[in-house]
Every structure is written in C-alpha cells, then in structure tokens.
Design a protein around this nucleic acid. Sequence first.
DNA 1: CGCTTAAGTCATCCCCCGTTGACATCTGTC
DNA 2: GACAGATGTCAACGGGGGATGACTTAAGCG
Lengths: 196, 196
Amino acid sequence: MTNTATLAPERSAPRKRDAEATKRAILDAAKIHFARSGYDGAYLRDIAADAGADAALINRYFGGKDGLFQAALKDSIAPDAISHWSRASFGLDVATMMAGHAHQQVERTHAFEFLLQAATNPATAKLLNVAVQERFLGPIRAWIGGKDAEPRARVLASVFIGLLVERLIRDEALEGAERDIFIKRTATVLQSLVEN
Amino acid sequence: MTNTATLAPERSAPRKRDAEATKRAILDAAKIHFARSGYDGAYLRDIAADAGADAALINRYFGGKDGLFQAALKDSIAPDAISHWSRASFGLDVATMMAGHAHQQVERTHAFEFLLQAATNPATAKLLNVAVQERFLGPIRAWIGGKDAEPRARVLASVFIGLLVERLIRDEALEGAERDIFIKRTATVLQSLVEN
DNA sequence: CGCTTAAGTCATCCCCCGTTGACATCTGTC
DNA sequence: GACAGATGTCAACGGGGGATGACTTAAGCG
C-alpha cells in the first residue's frame, strides 16, 4: 500500500531558500497525500519529496505529522462554503450541482476527499470535529438562524456531506429522467431543512 | 492510537479447539475493528485478542492482514442489509440510531461503517463501488419499489451515508432538546424518501 | 495408551516510518 | 568578506506492528 508515483512535476530548479514558500509547498503536497491515502497512509517522506523538501523540515515547520495534518485541515475548510447561496433557491441549486460529476470541480473534490479521510479515522475525527464546528457548522447555523439552528444545521450538514460522498462514488453524471427525479427529491429535502 | 478497550465479552471458558469457530471469531472481531478504525488503525494483535485467539492464527487462516480484510469485507456485504427495517418506522429508527454516538457499536451499522472505511482506502475503493451498487443501492431500490426507485435510492443512500459520517465526527451522543429536534428532522427526511 | 495431525502459543525478526540532532550551506547585514 | 542566523541536508535511532517458524498442547483413532 505504498505510493510509488509522485504527483508533483519535476522541480528542475530547486527554489531559492524561502521558508514561506517551502511551507506552502509542503502544505499543498500534504493535502493531496492526505486526501488520497489518509492520515496513516500518507508518508512524510513522500510528502516532502513531492514538495521538493526534506522530511526533517516538516518537523521544524509544523512540529510533526500531527501538526501538519492540522494545518492542512485548516487550510482545507473554507469558512464560508455555504453562506453565499440564496436561501430561496438553495435546495435546487445544491441539488443541481450534486447531480453533476465530481470531476467537474477538481480542487473542491480534493479538499473533500481529505475531509472524508479525516472523518473515517478515529484519531483524526476529533480534529475534524473542531474544524467542522468552527468553519462549517458555525456558518450554516448562523445562516439558518432561529432557535433550533444547531440541530438543524447538523442535519443539513449531514445531508450535504452524504451528497458529496455519493457524488464522489458515482462514476458519471446523472442524465434524463433519472437526473430530474434526483434533483427534485434532493431539492425538496434540502429546502425543507432551510425553510420553516 | 491504540484501542485499549476490548469489545468482546470476557471469554472465561476458552472455546474448544475448533478451527471454524476460531475463524468465525476472528472474522467477527475483525469486522468491528476495521469498521471502527479502518485498515491501518486496526491491529492484528487487538483483533486476535478480542477473538480470544493468537495473532499468528490470522496469518495461518487468512494469509495475512490483507486477506483478513478482504474476507471481512466480503462477509460484511450482506445483500439484505437494509430490508430488516420496517418501512413504517424506518425514518424514526434510523434517526434515533444516528443520534447516538459512533462508539456505541450498533450492530446494524457495522457493515456500512466498514464500507465507508473501504471507500477511503485506495486499495479497496474499487470494490466499494461495485458493492454499493449491487448490494446496497439494489436492495434499497427493490425495497422502495416503483418507477422512480433508482434515483430515489440514490438520494436515500446519500442521506444515510451523510448521517454516518456526521456521527463519526461528532464526539458525543446528542441529548435533550437538541437530540429531539435532530431526530424529528432526520426522521422526516428519511421517511419522506421511503414513502410516497 | 501411543501416535499423528491439527490447533494454538510464544518469542523473535525485521521492515517501515516518524522523529531527532548534528552538520552543511545559503543569505542578508555591517 | 566575515559573521550570524536562518534554511536545508543527512544519517541514524527507536517504537510499532505484521510476519514467521519452532514449539506445545489438545483431539481423534487404532
């Protein structure tokens, strides 16, 4: 279960000494590796290699694998993922998006795979919980508003996550009548969670 | 990242020598561990301990960790995993279950959690797609019945998966009013996907 | 009873990978 | 251009955990 292939293009000209750029490169490589292989399956040596850096630097800059993971996690969760949708058409908008294919939005998919990996590892699930609370559930909660915002945000987030996973697993975009029904059903569910 | 608590009840009377029973015990323990901790996070020593067996036997009977994982996976995908539920109380039953905590091992969700783990493992991800299609979506589809069974099964599966993930990253069981609202909302969503 | 074979146990090996600290090299500043 | 501090490199260590094989014990059988 080792990853033989490196992902980053060959770095013929090793970058000038620049701690920030190096951190950035490590972080980017880490996100890809964590997304693809999970916490345990991602190896610091591989990440460092892809970043064109030495594994020891990960320790210096991030304080170890755990720190790197946390940093990558934070870097992966956009705090305002939900709130730019219009409430009136939320259900339909999201449903339509989910009917498409995951590969249509590559960067987001990477981020999401990463989060899924984090969720399925008990050790990292706790970290994810904190991050999700702050950066995902919080905004949704604020957006929903009202007394029951908290549990409702939970349900909405769950459904949202489920749809993302389904789209990830599905190997092609939905079409025709199937697509229509899917969108209609999904939109109904989502909208019912936002309204009322 | 070690699992201190054993799950199986104390085996005061070590079972009589019986290869089949031992295999069975190992397999059952493995399914729990893999479901909870994923491939990397599940340790053969722990599994063997829970099965009341020696780790070396895993090698003899399953040819290594990989073989055990495959065997457990195969054993986990029961084609009728969903149909145990009553249609009338499906929404409420599932919602109540999901309000609990992931550490409360729920017999009925083991298989799904296991599949979720398999989904995030590059080596087994391919298996999952087939498994989900044949063994999960299929039964749900048949169970729902009717003309639009296919896309509706999709939506139902999505929501189900989302709830599983949410439960994984939540660090405690929901309580009080929050729990009630969560259950009510979730039950409504699920039931609406089954009925009509 | 012995004998044989399967079932189970134990100690040990060995590889993998995160971590560490000493060392080398670059870069900016006076 | 020399010094200091930051940046990058290297080799080695050590723990964890899967694998292995020799050893022990139980079960079936004549």
